[in-house]
Amino acid sequence: MHDGSGRIVVDGLTKSFRSVAAVTGLGFTVEPGSVTGFLGPNGSGKTTTLRMILGLIRPDAGTATVNGVPFGRLGHPARVVGAVLEAQGFHPARQARSHLSAYAAAIGVPAQRVDAMLELVGLGPAAARRAGGYSLGMRQRLGLATALLGDPQVLVLDEPANGMDPEGIAWLRAFLQAFARSGRTVLVASHLLAEIEQTVDQVVIVSRGACVYDGSLEGLRRGQRSRVLVAPSDGRALVAALRARDVTDVEQRMDGRLAIGGPDRWQIAHLALEAGVALYDLAEERVDLEQTFLQLTSGQYGTGGRW
């Protein structure tokens, strides 16, 4: 039986479809009590990874466990893990309530649970409507209601904000945070950092099927090297002066300014003075998390070349 920890552990997970490698040696841990974002561009292997955690796809190598055991050995899986995945559907002719009733029976929860979940996600008035007539946002809500039927300890969501209106997204954000605060586990996959930046505490970033960052969102912000942006009267002279002090992290930006990593603003101002270079602008570069994300996932930052 499982250990009830609510922890998701992914270790050395590898999967190829035909000859295309989707995930290669991916490893990370998702802890209970916080919302973990699972970030990466489209095609980076997020959905494949989630489906391997949920036992829907067999990995070529590596393991994924929930509560210490593979999904297939949980016994009552829906009471441990609830999932809202992208390619998860509904029979178009089946009423939302009937859909939930069928899965409530499979999980072994009473009928009252169905109505409670419909109310929770705000589908109470639409319960007798056929799922085929639902909007994308309503389908996401119905998917969430289905995932929550078994009162799971772990919630896994793939791009849950797709098709949701701003009000729905705000509601979902508050719901997921409250869910995590109660000591449970939330893993949310998204290709947009901005979409989940306000929701998550931890992030796992994948690029081309491999993990490039695993830690707190704060750590990601802090880990970004801070640079100083300057607009010198003579760029070559300033770079030469910097080189003389072993400062080589210099980048020419599109706007003509130099981005310098290493010394702080005062040191650079002094250096410029000694080198006889006038500085028309001197500022700390603002750390943009989105750019950090792009840098991690594509390995390319900025459009200018290095000096």
């Binding site: 998860q88 559907g89 899965y103």
Partner: peptide, 11 residues
């Protein structure tokens, strides 16, 4: 209808 995912997740 892609309900197989939900069916397998609840079985």
């Amino acid at each position: 209808h892609r309900t197989i995912t939900t069916t397998l997740l609840t079985g």
